[in-house]
Amino acid sequence: MASNAAVPFWRAAGMTYITYSNICANLVRNCLKEPFKAESINREKVHFSLSKWADGKAQKPVLRSDQPEV
């Protein structure tokens, strides 16, 4: 398995297995032929806002979104 050798490297880059597998999944999606490629890429949209809490108060929310802000 080629990926075995890569493990320490993405770990060292501060990635989790989830990020790594997402990048791999994205690569596979990019390999698809056209109607399926656009469809599968459009399906996977990321949008949510996350805020950390400190001392019982919410900090400023961070928007995690791959779409431009409206």
Binding site: I18, T19, S21, N22, E44, V46, F48
Partner: peptide
């Protein structure tokens, strides 16, 4: 979708 939830989980 899974991509979204996995980013959240991350």
């Amino acid at each position: 979708n899974y991509a979204q939830v996995s980013v959240l989980a991350d």
